[in-house]
Nucleic acid binder design. Sequence first.
DNA 1: ATTGATGAAC
Length: 549
Amino acid sequence: MLGVSSSCITANICQTLLSLLGKCKSMLELKKLHAIGISFGLSQEDSFISKILYFSAVSNSGDIDYSYRVFSQLYSPTIFSWNIIIRGYSNSKSPIHSLSIFLKMQQLGVAPNYLTYPFLVKASARLSNQESGVSLHAQIIKTGHESDIFIQNSLIHMYASCGNIIGAHKVFDSMQGKNLVSWNSMLDGYAKCGDMVLAHKVFESMQDRDVRSWSSLIDGYVKAGEYREAMAIFEKMQVVGPKSNEVTMVSVLSACAHLGALEKGRMMHKYIVNNGLPMTMVLQTSLVDMYAKCGAIEDALFVFRGVSKSQTDVFIWNAIIGGLATHGLVEESLKLFKEMQMVGIRSDEITYLCLLAACAHGGLVKEAWYFFESLVKCGMTPTSEHYACMVDVLARAGQLTAAYQFICQMPIEPTAPMLGALLSGCINHRNLDLAEIVGKKLIELDPNNDGRYIGLSNVYAVVKRWDDARSMREAMERRGVKKSPGFSFVEISGILHRFIAHDKTHPDSEETYSMLNFVVYQMIHGVRQDNRGENFLNDTLIEDELTLF
DNA sequence: ATTGATGAAC
């Protein structure tokens, strides 16, 4: 009698705990409920443990490692439990654990089911590990799961993520009933591979398009450096497409940042606020970056300061430290680095790159050496960019011999950006003998880059060796190196204007050149308040004088 | 219970 009534009580407790777990909001709450459950002997009770595992592995405020610890105490986990753990790790920072747990599962002779595969394939995709993806694909075929649409979609994504767009397309073509996810995965695959012609083609041939279709297309254009096209698609989306979300806006802000389109960027910020889009960390980082790249460092700082420090991650710190560095606000940049360390955010390779850039702008050679050494001390391996930045610091400070020695002592081969930094240092500090050597080496290293010939040509121009300067241009043409036209953007009232050197097609071209001549005249002869510049339409003046800058 | 998108430096 007693046994029956006590198991009745336990069942009641279990029911109560299950309904409380359904409303659980945080890991702290979950752990309390878990503790109560254990004290009532529910530590192997399937319905109870499943809920514990599910919340800690899948929910946003979960903790997959906690989930795994609970899982590893189970005598005989159900396939449901295995799948939850594999799913949790596939979305975590270390998707590799999904695969190792799968391996364990196979060793124990537990068979995966149709729900296990999408999580595993996703783990391979996130690892960009095609080898494991292919082996999963083989197993999927062997077990007769190859016509499951969820599995097929995850395979498309996996192949595309591994850069195998042909493999992705094969799965796509083999499908009987494709859905929006299949099309979006294919579209995103092309966009990620940088093939925007095919990406756009897929987009055009789609019957339905959702916010992800539009976002993938926009992001593809951004990643391909076609920022104006990205903005054009976004504008079209607002007219004929679905409402954008915070993910769309991240790509759009990146386009604004690269274009230097501050007013557009501000409009996008307002759009985000007005539409109540969730202010995620990623979005805030994009805002900080956009404001910094558009020259509005105050606004970047304002957004940054609005983030509570406990929520920050290394990305947003890097964005603001790098932004301050490029604005020449070196002290502030280094101060924020100290603050970052106080908050306890671990810096990474890019943090150090930003710090070295700050040192380069501030002429802080000693500090640069210090950062370079602490980078190594923290167990990181300096990349060619770190070395290039270090060369830049030394070259800007006029320590040309030190820069040269630094390059010679590196464990890696010199790269073009390094020698480029050294070359500008040589020109600025008038060591033209070294400049000539470096300039020649640079052409050898990067013979298809028009800028490298111009670089050496500039060296000859400084020492007035006009024949040699001209021969550089001839060498360039002889080798068939295309000179890419230099151009810049100016944003006026939210409209972007593009200016290409010597281009006269802009409707306000004449007025622009007139004003440019006026400005150049002022730079040479001093400011004259009374002149509006109408009579300065003189191209020769511009070309002659501008070569000096 | 399942699949598809986003941020930092060059």
